[in-house]
Amino acid sequence: MAHSGEVLEFEEYVRTRQDALLRSARRLVPDPVDAQDLLQTALVRTYGRWDGIADKRLADAYLRRVMINTRTEWWRARKLEEVPTEQLPESAVDDASEQHADRALLMDVMKVLAPKQRSVVVLRHWEQMSTEETAAALGMSAGTVKSTLHRALARLREELEKRQRDELVAGALDRREERERCAA
């Protein structure tokens, strides 16, 4: 059971860090509601272990690790429930600005990565953690972080190139159909 001083300390930590932690959760799961659920679940789990975190400066790393583990648990559970379909649903892209479209595309492309790869990309590129910090947060060696990041970035490039090719082909087919309609 936490003492009242620890409860106040945890509440202050959450109050000061919640925006940054929610951004981390949002990068780990694309849906904003799921990101809030992920953060809340991680906070509950962290609260139960708060007194065990001797150096509170490491609380962010601890909490991010809890979020990654929780997201992985959810992914494994969901994976068993998913049923493949022939057609993918159309993805909605916010066309308010090019930046939003790029972000939506990147979040969509990140879905092709395995949870471990996604975690490494998020921590290294969004959270701007060093290789060593990422390795410590994920419980792996620095070499594994580097090789996982290399494979993940290659997979992202491959997916982006594939999507670009698909768009070019679709555009060419649309123009061809338009010419045929005009000629008829």
Rank of each mutant, 00 (worst) to 15 (best):
A61I: 05
A61W: 01
A61M: 07
Y62I: 08
L63I: 15
L63V: 14
R65G: 14
M67W: 04
T70L: 00
T70K: 03
T70V: 04
R71F: 03
E73V: 09
W74P: 00
W74T: 08
A77F: 09
L80Q: 14
L80T: 15
E82S: 11
E82K: 11
P84S: 13
P84W: 11
L88F: 10
L88H: 10
L88I: 07
E90L: 06
E90P: 04
V93A: 05
D94W: 04
D95V: 15
D95R: 13
A96G: 10
Q99K: 06
D102A: 12
R103A: 10
A104Y: 13
L105Y: 06
L106P: 00
M107H: 11
D108V: 05
K111P: 00
A114V: 10
Q117N: 03
Q117G: 06
R118F: 00
V120N: 00
V121I: 03
R124W: 06
W126L: 01
W126V: 04
W126M: 01
E127K: 02
Q128D: 10
Q128E: 14
M129W: 14
M129I: 09
E133C: 04
T134L: 00
T134P: 04
T134A: 02
A135P: 06
A135Y: 04
A136W: 10
A137Q: 08
G139T: 13
G139A: 07
G139L: 07
M140W: 14
S141R: 03
S141I: 03
T144D: 08
V145E: 07
V145F: 03
K146E: 15
S147P: 07
S147C: 03
T148N: 05
L149N: 08
L149W: 00
R151S: 03
A154I: 08
R157H: 15
R157P: 03
E158L: 02
L160F: 10
L160M: 13
E161F: 12
E161V: 14
K162V: 09
K162P: 01
Q164I: 13
Q164M: 12
D166T: 11
E167P: 03
L168W: 11
V169H: 05
A170G: 07
A172L: 13
L173I: 12
